[in-house]
Design a protein around this nucleic acid. Structure first.
Length: 255
DNA sequence: ATGGCTTCATAGTGAAGA
């Protein structure tokens, strides 16, 4: 099974790139974040025509998540239990006995912002939910845009970023709390190039200069991690005209 | 550097992203 996650920063704008990418990258499931589409505007017909099923939870302008798959998803859920939230950031479903949990984690904006407190509380709710879900779904993958760079090696300039949002210690502690559920960072199961990132700012030629952060992740449950054969970031779409600021992250599982 | 792009929004003194 091959699965991937990609923050597309508007599915309306990026649909042609997504369809092209799926042709070149025959995954079983692709998790999308920041679709920025209400459900009524979701391009289901175009995806079906290209041979893809889709489950989605969207809203106007912001957020929005979806899972595209060859086979239909089963047991789809779109809520964080016990966390009343109008923001569409979660969609989960099952495929071939694997539970896929697609998340668009809050950005936080700045350490002083109310959005930062919301981010920390949101991660607590996510962790509590997954602690409950894992016994039910031992073969579970949590993938998406976490908006956290877990370690300094995931940051192009750790000194400049020290303590900033996406990198701050309280955020990294939330990431570690997910790992303490037994989830493993698929990307770090393998040797990787130094300077591997999944997001680059649109400004300042950040991509060309590789001034990035690794904030998009695939976390595998203990039952799945031994089945992982590869995990990589596909930088090709970031080189396209009018790209998303994020690159897809792909994981290959031998089930 | 004071957020320099990009999105969706509306016509703002944008807002938000990361």
């Amino acid at each position: 099974m091959r699965i991937a996650t990609w923050n597309v920063n508007s599915l309306k704008v990026r649909l042609p790139q997504v369809l092209d990418w799926l042709v070149a990258n025959p995954v079983d499931a692709l998790c999308l974040q920041e679709t920025k589409l209400e459900n009524a505007s979701f391009p289901l017909a175009q995806l079906n025509e290209a041979g893809w099923q889709a489950a989605f939870a969207g809203q106007k302008t912001y957020n929005g998540v979806a899972i595209l798959s060859r086979a239909p998803l089963e047991d789809v859920r779109t809520e964080l239990p016990g966390f009343a939230d109008a923001q569409k950031r979660v969609i989960a479903g099952s495929l071939q006995g694997v539970r896929l949990v697609c998340v668009y984690c809050p950005n936080g904006q700045s350490l002083e912002s109310d959005k930062y407190q919301y981010k920390l509380a949101w991660f607590d709710a996510l962790t509590a939910w997954l602690r409950d879900e894992l016994p039910r779904h031992p073969r579970l993958v949590l993938l998406g845009d976490y908006n956290i760079a877990p370690e300094d090696r995931d940051v192009h300039d750790p000194a400049a970023w020290q303590g900033a949002v996406l990198v701050s210690e309280p955020e990294r502690a939330k990431f570690r709390a997910l790992r303490e559920l037994g989830l493993q960072d698929a990307f770090r199961l393998f040797e990787q190039e130094e300077g591997s990132y999944s997001w680059w700012d649109y400004r300042q030629g950040a991509f060309r200069r590789n001034l990035g952060l690794r904030i998009d992740h695939v976390l595998l449950s203990g039952a799945l991690a031994p089945a992982c054969r590869a995990c990589y970031i596909d930088k090709a779409p970031r080189r396209l005209e009018r790209p998303s600021d994020h690159a897809p992250v792909v994981a290959e599982l031998e089930l």
